[in-house]
């Protein structure tokens, strides 16, 4: 890949991450690393986003949020798992509330190493994702709507019952 035809926008979601990777993603946007020179903008709206950047691992409460954001994104879309927690659960994989990496829930295209992931490796991961995005675009690929088969129905009921 030598150039980009369009400016890819990213959406970032913190799924039970410790903040370490999150602040490094933010650091990528700031003058020292400045990914905006590649046309990359961090947006808050999934409908505007091409790349889904997730930090941290899947837990009971954020399952539906991750799915919700992923399914709202337009095709073609790419998911990037940033940091070891998003890849496999990392040091927290033995915690009772951690189900594991993001790929337990949604298809992941790029894994970024590190605890916390360094801005350089995050940028490298995003640039790799851009290549995959271009490929998906040229193939006209469309991702299926992902549903969660493991969602604990009982907890779901609790949430609806909520506090009055």
């Amino acid at each position: 890949m030598t150039y980009l035809a369009k400016s890819p926008w990213i959406i970032h979601y913190d799924a039970s991450s410790c903040n370490g990777c999150d602040i490094e993603i933010l650091a990528c946007l700031t003058p020292m690393y400045d990914v905006e020179r590649f046309g990359i903008i961090n947006t808050g709206n999934p409908k505007h986003a091409d790349i889904f950047v997730v930090t941290g691992s899947v837990n009971e409460q954020n399952r539906e949020v991750i799915l919700n954001i992923y399914n709202q994104m337009p095709d073609p879309k790419v998911a990037v798992a940033v940091g070891i927690c998003a890849t496999s659960g990392g040091v927290f994989r033995e915690c009772y509330n951690v189900a594991g990496g993001i790929d337990k829930l949604i298809p992941v295209d790029v894994y970024v190493m590190g605890c916390a992931a360094r801005p350089e490796s995050i940028i490298d991961g995003i640039v790799t994702a851009l290549g995959i995005l271009e490929k998906k675009r040229s193939e006209g690929a469309s991702a299926p709507v992902v549903t969660d088969h493991h969602m604990n129905k009982e907890h779901h009921k609790h949430a609806e019952g909520g506090v009055q």
Binding site: A15, S16, N59, N62, V65, F92, C95, Y96, N97
Partner: peptide
């Protein structure tokens, strides 16, 4: 609870 991992139990 969106970030609850339960790390104290480790």
């Amino acid at each position: 609870g969106y970030v609850h991992r339960g790390l104290e139990k480790l």
